[in-house]
Design a protein around this nucleic acid. Sequence first.
DNA 1: CCCTCACCATACGGCACCGTATTGACAGCG
DNA 2: CGCTGTCAATACGGTGCCGTATGGTGAGGG
Lengths: 180, 180
Amino acid sequence: MTPDNLDRERWERAALDALERGGLAAVAVEPLARALGVTKGSFYWHFKSRADLIAATVARWERLHVDGPLQAAGAIDDPRERLMELLGRAGAKPPSIFIRLLDAVDEPVVRAAVARAAQERVAFLAKAFRELGLTPARARRQALLAYSTYVGRAHLARDAPELLGDQAALSRHIAEQLIG
Amino acid sequence: MTPDNLDRERWERAALDALERGGLAAVAVEPLARALGVTKGSFYWHFKSRADLIAATVARWERLHVDGPLQAAGAIDDPRERLMELLGRAGAKPPSIFIRLLDAVDEPVVRAAVARAAQERVAFLAKAFRELGLTPARARRQALLAYSTYVGRAHLARDAPELLGDQAALSRHIAEQLIG
DNA sequence: CCCTCACCATACGGCACCGTATTGACAGCG
DNA sequence: CGCTGTCAATACGGTGCCGTATGGTGAGGG
């Protein structure tokens, strides 16, 4: 036992990088093998198939970029500050991996993960808005609105960045409008 | 002269449909030929290459789904109503072709069109907000916010529709928050 | 000292697509 | 009737990827 999995890990890291840079199409066996300086022989030792690698990559993203940040923000007591943290961070570093995944929802594994992420994030936001005193229904709608802006901004950051102008000012504007 | 272009038109229509259903990857010569009941021989008569078809398809989308609606809304005098029209329509029919294009911004032609669309739409919204009395800077930020929600909602409609719940209520909520 | 086993290389067949001939079919006109 | 131009079918070669089969290689255990 104790499979130290260190080379499998290497493949997974490379896959996540490739996803960010070239989309899911770049999470392909032969290109990755070239990038890693090995051949497919290695890959098919560590993974059952390309689908297997994709599943692992998506799961990795979910751990690192969905559950992680949500747990971190959950440690903040004040709901207003918690929201600021989440919506502010959205402005700072545009989550390009996320958009790459949205580009690939035709893959059922990806669609499932993306849907789960949306569900968790909206629920998290809704809870914060409830703590701010909004009614449950209103809090949920406000959460959907906030999450929509998050996704939309990520898109603009990638596809029309020159449009965004002063990011910090926009972040303040959005926070003011949505959190109040 | 007078190339009646009727069969080229058929290819273009089919391409736009395929784009909506299967993304840009589905805008492929051989699959489309199969769907149309012809062979590639026809295609390479009407088009120089696949890139040519893609360019034509994107241009078609831009005419039908960007410039068209914007001109239509431009006919509304009252800026509040104009905004309602645009943001409301966003809730009614989720523009899945648009999302498919976002999925394909790696293609430079697509990226250019998407960026142009964003630029035009944001400018249009900003003008409306200015007419509502906002300062230019504030109007622009508000326009960016509104457009972000548009994109984000389109994403949710496709990838996590069960999350959206009552669309009409959400539309009202968003309008209330953004237009006031 | 050899053998096993984890690990990787090589080489192959298959598939789906792009693009290029080359060859027909058919309509209108002289 | 034959010629020409428009359009489509067939057939081919090329590319990039997936997955499999099979053959090394080197380190540790008996």
